[in-house]
Nucleic acid binder design. Structure first.
Lengths: 215, 215
DNA sequence: GTCTATACTTCGATAGAC
DNA sequence: GTCTATCGAAGTATAGAC
């Protein structure tokens, strides 16, 4: 945060040093409306539909306002991402602090809401450097927020790190929830019920094991 | 197409059925050049950059040719998808027929090439009905091509279906390779080596088990 | 600090010339 | 069977009026 406009052109990198036209304030209500509109469009119609004209129409405003509040469209995308990402990270950290069990971690990850959101930004990150950096930074923080909890939960049930490294368990869980969400959106759901039952039963088995934590 | 019925009783005036403008032949060399150009653009810059003008420029042709060979841009997208999808499916079926071992299935899936391709079409499928249908149909065929091999490989090593259903193993494998590819593209690779080693070692353990197939 | 008037580029698509 | 001329709509972005 606190990315003041000045720092943008202050860098050593060779820019044409444009006289940086004026940009609306961060806490403008109009700006928030534009962000909300952009997010709705992104989820409903994909990133290619998030254009200045479409966003403005969705918000009931003039297209030029988009360019007043955001220097370029990428800045709008990044801000849309950042808002949700920060909120989601905070939600996870709080939920894990309250209950870091495997069951809860699975429940949090298996929530299909946000799957479309992740998909759009994953695609965007593939082709836009600035967005990639933003998404990568978030991915690392999100990972860090979970891996300790997984490690603790596994250790508590007597599963040594060399038998199942926490990061492996976490990547498997992430991958599984991701593929389920992706296929679900396609309408391809064969085997999904079986898979959910399997995972839940596996977690239940684990949690029936004695709790070996020291107290 | 060719909606004949209506015109039969009323002669000339058919308002809603335009005389469907002429479209170039399927096996035109120019058409193939356009498809190649579209695929390159898709991978390098994302679907939002696959416009008639950009595609034509990439192919060294005039933009109008895109509309001559493809009724609408969606038709172009679908054709780009179909070409690669069919080739990939054939490749998998052949490879599995030759060697349906878990090791080979993992190797085939872990290949990160095509990750960007899948990403773009997953995003497109989320918002375009025609493309979703195409991708969903392919996903089902791709699944079917693998699930029997996984089932056979597990059964051969004495793993009963109720202990690890083949579809669950396949979804876990798919999810894992997908998340590895996705993070790799982001430059987030912490734990990836550990995970690859874990999976390969797990497969090796399995394959050291006695082969219980009847011969 | 907020918004509008405006410029110019690129978009998909069609009709009709070779 | 192949390609060109051209259209109206939509795209990003800037300069300047309130």
């Amino acid at each position: 945060m606190l990315s003041i406009g000045a720092s943008a052109w202050q860098g050593v990198t060779v820019t044409t040093a444009p006289p940086s036209r004026r940009i609306g304030s961060q806490d403008s209500k109009t700006r928030a409306r534009l962000l909300d509109a952009a997010e709705r469009l992104l989820l409903e119609e994909g990133y290619a539909s998030v254009t200045s004209r479409r966003v403005a129409a969705e918000a009931g405003l003039k297209p030029q306002l988009v360019h007043y509040y955001f220097r370029a469209m990428d800045d709008l995308y990044i801000e849309v991402f950042r808002r949700r990402a920060e909120a989601n990270l905070a939600r996870f950290e709080q939920a894990i602090a309250e209950d870091g069990s495997l069951r809860n971690l699975w429940r949090l990850n298996a929530d299909p809401r946000g799957a479309a959101f992740r998909m759009e930004f994953a695609a965007l990150a593939n082709h836009r450097k600035a967005i990639r950096a933003e998404v990568a930074g978030y991915a690392e923080r999100f990972r860090a927020a979970q891996v300790d909890a997984v490690g603790a939960a596994l250790a508590a049930r007597g599963i040594a790190e060399d038998r199942l490294p926490p990061i492996v368990a976490l990547l498997m869980m992430t991958g599984l929830t991701q593929v389920l969400a992706l296929e679900g959106a396609l309408g391809v759901t064969a085997g999904h019920d079986t898979t959910l039952e399997f995972v839940e039963s596996a977690i239940a088995d684990l949690e029936r094991a004695p709790d070996r934590r020291r107290r």
